[in-house]
Design a protein around this nucleic acid. Structure first.
Lengths: 204, 204
DNA sequence: AATATCACGTGGTCAGACCACTGTCTTAAT
DNA sequence: ATTAAGACAGTGGTCTGACCACGTGATATT
């Protein structure tokens, strides 16, 4: 009965390759723009068939983590440009409920960012920009989110923002925007949050 | 000189296939657990080689959007289980700053959930559960997040929660938790938020 | 009826073959 | 010597055909 030891590759080859690539990138300190070995070379070095190597590379490419140029090679992309958004949007965010959730989430994160902005005392950084006239509410929001100095939160907000914009159009009263802006300029957190709640119909 | 019309397939085949699959899923109203055609059948129906079909499927599998079982077939997964984050996490969430941002984001989303819970008047749903003694803060938070009836927000929180737990351990005073819980039971939003701020050191 | 067997379909993997494109190196024309 | 044209090698893109490993259901056996 000595185990037949059926291959039973617990992990599929292409997954194994993805991990090897990750290690390779980490160990060799490869970064944005650098080139990784050709498919044929990876195939030889890792000891797997070229088609398996390609499956791994295609998956990473779909994620936007690498870029391939025919005739040239495969290159690492700036990880901050990953395509999470489009992918999630296309495949996951579909139903009506999800849209509602997305809009709701977006607004709540905006509010969180406002609070965080004040908590970190960074609201003054926006003053000069807010004083000019022709700024849309969205532009203001972008500055607020960026002002929080939290790239992750910014990323999440941008994702939601892009997705929401595909089916929802903000329609906000100019006066309310003005109140909101004034509150920020005056560094009045409470007033800013109140204005935002009204703006977004979050008051009870 | 009549254009040689080099193939120049603007879009690579595997991308084309990913899109076709998306349409197929949308049009046929396929959902979690449903089976999609076999690789060989897709190859025939779409008119592309099996290897290209596989590249597309492997990419979607890495994303956690589909699941393949040898000998059985390929199935659609619950989109709420996608692995995007884990993947991106492995590749891009590494620096110290990112960790700090993640913890910060997590806490802010928690606060948002508390507000949303009250806004929707769903805080009473937790009362019975909160009255029992041996519940950890994390368990309470889970209930709150779930109570918001926003799957997207829940998903984001869970992701952040998992990631944060890999390097951070909450250490919260029991008395503060008690105050927080009492405020919720009494449906006192303001007190709950104040308690949370203290709990998380968000007060100024 | 219960059980063992086997054929078929499915995913997993590989090897080899072309094609299309890019960059370089060689060679021929100036 | 300079330059332009062509040959060549390397790389990704795609397809085909071949096995293997595994699950299922029909079939044969008991």
């Amino acid at each position: 009965m000595s185990e037949p030891v059926t291959n039973q590759a617990a992990t599929k080859v292409y997954i194994e390759i993805v991990e090897r690539l990750r290690d390779m990138i980490a160990n060799d300190g490869l970064g944005s723009g650098d080139r990784i070995p050709s498919e044929r070379e990876l195939s030889e070095r890792l000891g797997y068939g070229r088609s398996s190597v390609r499956e791994a590379l295609r998956a990473l490419e779909l994620l936007g983590l690498i870029e391939t140029r025919r005739g040239e090679g495969t290159f690492i992309k700036d990880f901050h440009e990953h395509r999470l958004v489009e992918l999630l949007g296309t495949f996951i965010l579909q139903g009506q409920k999800v849209r509602k959730d997305a809009l709701e989430s977006k607004i709540l994160i905006e509010k969180s960012c406002i609070e965080l902005l004040f908590l970190k005392g960074r609201e003054h950084l926006l003053s000069h920009m807010l004083e000019s006239e022709n700024v849309s509410f969205n532009e203001i929001m972008v500055k607020i989110v960026e002002g929080t100095d939290n790239r992750l939160l910014k990323k999440i907000w941008k994702i939601l923002s892009e997705y929401v914009s595909s089916f929802h159009q903000d329609d906000i009263d100019q006066n309310q925007i003005h109140s909101f802006v004034q509150a920020i300029i005056q560094s009045d957190q409470e007033a800013a949050l109140t204005a935002f709640d009204q703006l977004r119909n979050l008051s009870k």
